Lab assay of single mutants.
Amino acid sequence: CHSECLGNCSQPDDPTKCVACRNFYLDGRCVETCPPPYYHFQDWRCVNFSFCQDLHHKCKNSRRQGCHQYVIHNNKCIPECPSGYTMNSSNLLCTPCLGPCPKVCHLLEGEKTIDSVTSAQELRGCTVINGSLIINIRGGNNLAAELEANLGLIEEISGYLKIRRSYALVSLSFFRKLRLIRGETLEIGNYSFYALDNQNLRQLWDWSKHNLTITQGKLFFHYNPKLCLSEIHKMEEVSGTKGRQERNDIALKTNGDQASCENELLKFSYIRTSFDKILLRWEPYWPPDFRDLLGFMLFYKEAPYQNVTEFDGQDACGSNSWTVVDIDPPLRSNDPKSQNHPGWLMRGLKPWTQYAIFVKTLVTFSDERRTYGAKSDIIYVQTDATNPSVPLDPISVSNSSSQIILKWKPPSDPNGNITHYLVFWERQAEDSELFELDYCLKGLKLPSRTWSPPFESEDSQKHNQSEYEDSAGECCSCPKTDSQILKELEESSFRKTFEDYLHNVVFVPRKT
């Protein structure tokens, strides 16, 4: 048989008469490798580009789960590009990614509803959504962080984005990388972005840091009482949809009607710091009717980097990364020049730590249904340095008659930039024990000054392991946590139920 035959053949030295091919099969003959313009397919066939392209389009058009959109890589027609490569849609070739590779997620039936953290986790790592997304989240724990972890990498949506009755959302900033909504599939009414009845939605994105392009379709905003109209108009300008909307697409009466839409800028007039305090004062603000001013709200939190936005980490279910302080308005003076500047002394802060701070007014709604208010920009203030805590785990070892090696770990709280350490030492008198000992005694162990690591005695271990207080009263049991108490109650309830079950099964009433 021919060298490319495997198993047997019907005619000697003829690659077209093989029972099976050793390498690849091409047009009725066995070959060692697939010549151009053919590609290896499933490690035994040679196919042309049209064959591989037909497989790709067949799966793409069917949208069946589990099928493969075949691509070409290293002269092979394979189910998908290997790690580190992405497909070129024009020629199906796998090309190296520039940075992290995109991950295209194809949605069944063309859309997916995100109504819980669990459903959001199914899209973790996706960068391109081939379909439409509907966000409908009523509640949950730590929602802002969970949504950002699972949806934060999405850069492109081919269909539309719909935010509907998501009472738990305060902001859409968890879509931190969303840059493009194509609108290839539109919501009824030709809408590519749809926001309806979101009672706590206050911000779409921080438009000073976020760009969003909507290729096709219109915007729809109705019944978002805490979303200011200025935020919607800003989205029109940034996304390129200005002029597409009709009169009733953006409701003037049901958007922002319960919001404090600040239209003035508060400026800080005085800032002073110490290692654990920050004193702030800002310019006074009074609405047209000074009785509408209820006070100020001061927001602050630790910020290692200057990239904080107002609604980071917030949701309507209680999660809030900001510390909020309510401040009463100052006494009002008739003389504008003698107006008191409101302020606040922030206490209990960490030394040498940068804080993000902003302040906003708290006002009631005027009778004319106009909203007044003022808010400052987010500023960054760093507390002063102070003395560091003591170095940890000092170790001293003498390696000769004239040297001592000293080692330690950095302090747990540096409280500033540590530039150097101060080492103090003092000579001590020799131990009298060394002169009084009889060095001729056998088995004498000389006193040693070398360091030995501390260890816990058996008594201390027994005390720590004991669940009861000892007789001397030195140790006591740790208080039980809520989960331990709940577990004990469940076990007790189970024992009672099981005992009742045994009584009912074992003891049967005697027939009379």
Rank of each mutant, 00 (worst) to 15 (best):
L265G: 06
D315P: 05
F311M: 07
Q199C: 10
C105Q: 01
R165T: 14
S192R: 01
L362H: 14
G140D: 09
Q203H: 03
S402D: 10
Y223A: 04
L298P: 00
R182S: 07
P410T: 10
L331M: 14
N141V: 12
D276V: 01
S269M: 08
P391L: 04
D292S: 08
W286L: 11
G343L: 01
P330N: 11
L265V: 12
L227N: 00
S239N: 05
G343I: 03
R138C: 03
Q314H: 07
E246C: 03
T185Q: 06
L196Q: 13
C126R: 00
C317V: 05
K209S: 08
K277R: 02
T386V: 12
Y191N: 04
V117G: 13
L169G: 02
E148S: 07
F193M: 13
M346P: 00
R124Y: 01
N334V: 03
N334K: 14
A149S: 06
I395A: 13
P388Y: 01
A145T: 07
S389A: 04
P288D: 03
L349S: 01
L204F: 11
K209L: 10
S321N: 15
L331S: 11
S319C: 10
C228T: 03
N211E: 12
L252P: 06
D384G: 08
G189S: 05
T127D: 03
M297K: 10
G131E: 01
L186A: 10
H106M: 11
S208A: 14
D115L: 02
S274L: 07
Y160V: 03
L252Q: 10
L252M: 10
S158Q: 09
P388F: 01
L293R: 02
P329V: 04
W207V: 10
I395S: 08
L186F: 12
D292W: 13
L266T: 04
Q199Y: 04
P394L: 13
Y191P: 11
T241E: 04
S260D: 15
K301W: 05
D335T: 14
G295Q: 15
L180Q: 09
W207I: 05
S274P: 00
V170S: 07
R291L: 07
D377A: 08
L229S: 09
P351W: 02
K242Y: 14
P411H: 01
Q306R: 12
N211S: 12
V238N: 15
Q306F: 03
A144Y: 07
E237W: 15
R179W: 09
C228Q: 10
L161A: 03
L279I: 08
A149C: 14
A385R: 09
S166W: 01
S166P: 02
N224Q: 06
K218T: 15
Q339P: 07
E237K: 14
P391Y: 02
Y223D: 05
G139K: 08
L107P: 14
K350Y: 15
S171H: 15
N200R: 06
F299T: 08
E264R: 08
G240N: 04
C317F: 15
K234F: 08
T273Q: 08
L293F: 08
G313A: 08
D115N: 05
D393H: 06
Y191T: 09
Q339I: 12
D315W: 02
L108Q: 07
F193T: 02
Q306V: 11
E237H: 09
P336T: 08
S119R: 04
T273S: 14
F220N: 03
N334T: 14
S400Q: 01
K350G: 03
S321D: 15
L204C: 09
Y305A: 14
I129L: 15
Y167P: 15
T254P: 07
H341P: 12
T353I: 15
T254L: 11
I250L: 09
L178M: 13
V104M: 06
K218C: 06
I395P: 01
G373V: 03
I405M: 01
L147Q: 02
K103S: 11
H233R: 05
T113L: 09
A374W: 04
L266H: 01
S239W: 03
S158N: 06
S158V: 08
K360R: 11
G125W: 10
G159W: 02
N200M: 05
I114P: 01
T353N: 02
N136Q: 01
G131H: 02
Q245E: 15
E109R: 04
E146L: 02
R369C: 12
E302H: 11
I181V: 09
I357R: 00
R347E: 11
Y305H: 14
Q245N: 10
D384Q: 02
K301C: 02
R176F: 02
L298C: 03
G125S: 07
T361F: 03
I157W: 00
F193Y: 03
S376F: 00
F311Q: 05
T386Y: 12
C261D: 06
K337Y: 10
Y160G: 07
P287L: 10
D312R: 11
I379P: 00
E310Y: 05
L298D: 00
Q382S: 15
P411F: 02
S401A: 14
T113I: 06
Q258M: 03
S389M: 05
I188H: 12
D393L: 08
T364A: 15
N387G: 13
C126Y: 03
Y305W: 10
G131S: 02
Y355E: 00
N224P: 00
Q199D: 14
N399G: 08
Y194F: 11
H106K: 04
D292K: 02
I405Q: 09
Q121T: 08
L133Q: 00
L229F: 15
S400E: 15
F221S: 06
G348I: 01
A168T: 14
R370Q: 06
L169M: 06
E148T: 11
W352A: 10
I357M: 01
L107G: 05
G189I: 01
C317G: 13
W205C: 02
L293W: 06
D393P: 04
S260N: 02
K277T: 09
L227H: 01
A385L: 01
C261G: 04
P284I: 09
S333N: 01
E155A: 05
H106Y: 10
F275S: 15
Y167H: 03
V170R: 03
G256Q: 05
N141Q: 09
Q339T: 08
S402N: 15
V104T: 15
R291H: 03
W344A: 13
L143R: 07
L204S: 05
H210N: 03
I379C: 13
R291F: 05
M297T: 02
N198W: 00
E302F: 02
K234N: 09
L147A: 04
R138L: 07
K350R: 14
E302S: 12
D393F: 14
S333P: 04
I232N: 01
V104P: 06
T241V: 09
T309L: 15
L133M: 09
C228M: 04
F174I: 14
F175E: 00
G183L: 01
G125A: 11
T371F: 03
H222R: 10
S389L: 05
A145L: 13
N141I: 06
P304V: 04
K409E: 15
N198C: 04
A144P: 08
D312N: 07
T118A: 02
T371E: 09
K209P: 05
R202Y: 12
R244H: 09
K350A: 08
P288N: 10
F221M: 14
G318L: 12
T383Q: 00
S208Q: 10
N340L: 08
E187M: 14
E246T: 11
L143G: 15
P351E: 03
L186E: 07
T254F: 07
M235R: 00
L265S: 10
R347D: 12
S319A: 07
I404M: 12
F299I: 08
P394I: 08
C105R: 02
L298S: 01
G140M: 02
S269A: 09
S192C: 02
R370D: 07
Q121H: 14
T254S: 07
Q354H: 06
G256P: 05
S173F: 05
S319Q: 07
R176P: 04
F299K: 04
I405A: 05
M346V: 04
C261S: 05
S119C: 14
P342F: 08
E310S: 08
A356K: 02
C261N: 05
I154R: 00
L331P: 03
P287M: 10
W344L: 09
F299A: 15
N255F: 11
G373L: 02
E236V: 14
L349V: 05
Y194R: 11
T371H: 10
K267G: 08
L362Q: 04
R164T: 07
L362R: 14
A144H: 10
E148R: 12
V104G: 05
D367S: 10
S166M: 15
S389I: 01
V324I: 05
F358Q: 07
A120M: 07
P288H: 11
S230T: 07
L294D: 05
A374Y: 06
T323K: 12
A303P: 03
A145E: 14
V359Y: 03
S333I: 04
E155P: 00
S173R: 06
A303Y: 15
A251I: 07
N224T: 06
T361Y: 13
K209W: 10
Q199T: 07
G256E: 14
A251K: 06
T113V: 11
I278A: 05
G152Q: 06
I214V: 14
T254E: 03
V325W: 15
N399W: 07
L345P: 05
W207D: 08
W344V: 04
Q403I: 02
W408T: 00
S260T: 10
Q216H: 11
